[in-house]
C-alpha cells in the first residue's frame, strides 16, 4: 500500500525558532479545508446523537429564550420595544446574540479543550476556531428560518413593520457577527492558556455582555451621550440594532455607530488572529 507515489506536490517544511509573529500560514489552513469541513460536520451531527429531540434543540432553545424574555422584560418589566411586536423584537436579538456567543465559546475553548489531540498531532490550530464560525452559522440558519416564519405571521396579522433597504446589508451583519465572535474567541482562547480563570469567568462575562447589548431593550432607551458612546462601542449593538431596523423600520440606526462597530470588530479580529497564532506555536509546553 506504500507503493503508490503520493500525488500532491513535494512537501517542504522548514521548522525554525522565532517565526515572525505576523506570519499566518493561510495556504496551510486552506490545505486543511477538508478537515475544517469534517469538524463542522462532526460538531453538527455528534452533539445531538442520542438525544430524543435531536436537532429540534436548535429551535427550542431560542424559542424558549424568546418566550421568557417576552414575559419577563416585555410583560412584567414593561420595557419599550420601539413599537415592534415583542416576540419579533426579542427573537431578532436573541438569534444574533446566540450566533455571536456560539462562535465566541467555540473559539474560546479551541486550545484548552482540545489539548489531547493538539499535543499528539499537528494541524493548523486555527481550523478549530474557524469551524465554530460555520457550525454556529448552521444553527443560526435554522433559527433564522424560524424567525422568518414568525415574522411573516406577524406581518400577515397586520403588525406595523416596514422592511427596508437595509435588508440588503443583512448578510454583512451576519458576517460581522461571526468575525466578532471569532475575534473575541481567539483572544479568550489565547489568554486561557495562561489564565485558566477565564474559563470560569467567561459564561458570567458573556451574560453581562448580553445585558450591555440592546437585546432585551432598544438602543433608544439610552439617551445620555457618554452612555450612548459606550453602548455603540460594543460592536454587537450595531449588529442587533441594524438587524431590527432592517426588518421593522424601527429603532435607532446610527451610521457612525455601525462604522465604529466595524472598526472595533476588525481590530479585535486581527489582533485576535495574531495573538492566537503566536500562542498556538508553543502552547503545548505550558498546558
Amino acid at each position: 500500500m506504500f507503493e503508490s507515489k503520493s500525488a500532491g506536490p513535494s512537501h517542504r517544511t522548514h521548522i525554525r525558532a522565532g517565526q515572525p509573529w505576523w506570519r499566518i500560514d493561510w495556504r496551510e489552513i486552506w490545505e486543511y479545508r477538508d478537515l475544517l469541513a469534517l469538524l463542522v460536520k462532526r460538531d453538527l451531527t455528534a452533539i445531538y446523537k442520542q438525544t430524543i429531540l435531536g436537532p429540534l434543540w436548535f429551535i427550542i432553545q431560542p424559542l424558549l429564550t424568546t418566550v421568557v424574555f417576552t414575559v419577563i422584560f416585555g410583560r412584567v418589566g414593561g420595557l419599550s420595544t420601539d413599537g415592534i411586536p415583542h416576540f419579533i423584537f426579542y427573537m431578532s436579538g436573541t438569534i444574533l446574540w446566540n450566533y455571536f456567543q456560539g462562535v465566541l465559546n467555540h473559539g474560546a475553548g479551541s486550545l484548552v479543550g482540545n489539548t489531547g489531540v493538539l499535543s499528539k498531532v499537528y494541524f493548523p490550530r486555527m481550523v478549530i476556531p474557524l469551524s465554530g464560525v460555520f457550525v454556529n452559522f448552521a444553527h443560526l440558519a435554522l433559527n433564522f428560518v424560524l424567525f422568518l416564519g414568525f415574522y411573516v405571521w406577524f406581518m400577515l396579522r397586520g403588525s406595523d413593520m416596514n422592511p427596508n433597504g437595509w435588508l440588503l446589508m443583512f448578510p454583512l451583519l451576519i458576517v460581522q457577527c461571526g468575525l466578532m465572535g471569532l475575534g473575541f474567541g481567539l483572544w479568550v482562547s489565547a489568554l486561557t492558556i495562561k489564565y485558566r480563570d477565564l474559563r470560569f469567568a467567561l459564561p458570567f462575562l458573556t451574560q453581562l455582555w448580553m445585558y450591555a447589548t440592546p437585546v432585551v431593550y432598544p438602543a433608544s432607551l439610552v439617551v445620555t451621550p457618554q452612555w450612548k458612546f459606550l453602548l455603540w462601542l460594543n460592536p454587537m449593538t450595531a449588529v442587533v440594532e441594524f438587524n431590527r431596523y432592517a426588518f421593522t423600520g424601527r429603532g435607532s440606526p446610527d451610521i457612525a455607530g455601525l462604522g465604529l462597530s466595524w472598526v472595533v470588530t476588525l481590530v479585535i479580529l486581527v489582533s485576535g488572529l495574531l495573538l492566537f497564532n503566536k500562542v498556538q506555536r508553543t502552547f503545548v509546553d505550558t498546558i
Binding site: 512537501h11 522548514h14 521548522i15 525554525r16 525558532a17 522565532g18 517565526q19 498531532v121 499537528y122
Partner: peptide
Amino acid sequence: TRITEPTSGEAFINGRVASLLE
C-alpha cells in the same frame, strides 16, 4: 512534527510527513 516550536535552531523536512505519536 510541529506540535511545538524549537527555542533555537532549525530543521528542514523534505517530503510528506506522517506521525504516529498515538
